[in-house]
């Protein structure tokens, strides 16, 4: 575990010492800020964050892959993976360490948006339930998105490929439920259950359902597991 921590700590330092991460953070704040203002722009504004949540989940389709694309692809490109994998480090420690670093950066990005609800609490009287549950959903959704990015970064030494593939997968997963109307019966149920958006909806409405929590946690675990396997298989290629 200490090595996983070391990997995470090193990557966190890279994140915070690198302009790329700040650009990602800036775009995240700009876009979510825009959606937050949409919430307030109505003639009869409602003191809620539902538009903000929708905007945050959509922009994360692009930003989560941007945060993770470097993590393993660059090691493979530069060859530093050769020294990493010949150190007495377990493959899961590498993946978990890198993942934790990206999670820390994502959480700090999300923390910066806390002044939106703060403004609401100061100037209005919002229903606190949806605000708390929405943030919980956003964090769960973000963790799942990052795990997909980790997998694609493990599979290639090309950061652009890692970015495009994980953004594509995330986009498909996110909007999968909208395809439910096209197909019927069993497939509609399946597609609806796989789609991230359908699981996120309840959170932004103030409902915390363990089914949805379980969904996001298993997506995260599944993709992290695949990443570990992919890194292992790298040794055999």
């Amino acid at each position: 575990m200490r090595t996983a921590q070391a990997v995470a700590w090193k990557e966190i330092q890279v994140y915070f010492g690198n302009p790329m991460a700040y650009i990602v953070g800036l775009i995240f704040l700009a876009v979510t800020g825009f959606f937050f203002v949409l919430d307030l722009g109505d003639p009869f504004p409602e003191a809620s964050l539902s538009n903000f949540y929708q905007g945050a989940t959509i922009i994360l389709i692009l930003l989560a892959p941007a945060l993770t694309m470097r993590l393993l692809a660059e090691e493979q490109k530069l060859g530093t993976i050769e020294l990493l994998l010949t150190s007495p480090v377990r493959d899961w420690e590498v993946i978990i360490g890198k993942y934790l670093a990206s999670l820390v950066f994502l959480l700090s990005m999300i923390m910066l948006t806390l002044y939106y609800p703060l403004l609401l609490f100061i100037f209005a009287d919002p229903d606190p339930g949806p605000i708390y549950s929405g943030y919980l959903g956003l964090i769960l959704y973000g963790s799942a998105a990052l795990s997909i990015g980790i997998l694609t970064s493990t599979l290639t030494s090309n950061q652009i490929v890692a970015f495009v593939v994980s953004a594509g997968v995330l986009l498909l997963l996110f909007f999968a439920n909208t395809g439910a109307g096209v197909v019927g019966g069993f497939w509609a149920t399946l597609v609806n259950e796989v789609g991230m958006n359908s699981h996120f909806g309840d959170f932004s409405r103030g409902v915390i359902d363990t089914k949805h929590i379980f969904y996001f946690l298993s997506v995260t675990a599944f993709f992290l597991f695949l990443s570990i396997r992919a890194l292992e298989s790298r040794r055999w290629r």
Partner: peptide, 19 residues
């Protein structure tokens, strides 16, 4: 292959921890 964005001492510290 080295992490070009790290300083020498902190790189060595990192490699030491990995070992």
């Amino acid at each position: 292959p080295l992490y070009t964005e790290m300083a020498v001492a902190s790189y060595l510290r990192y490699m030491g921890t990995l070992r």
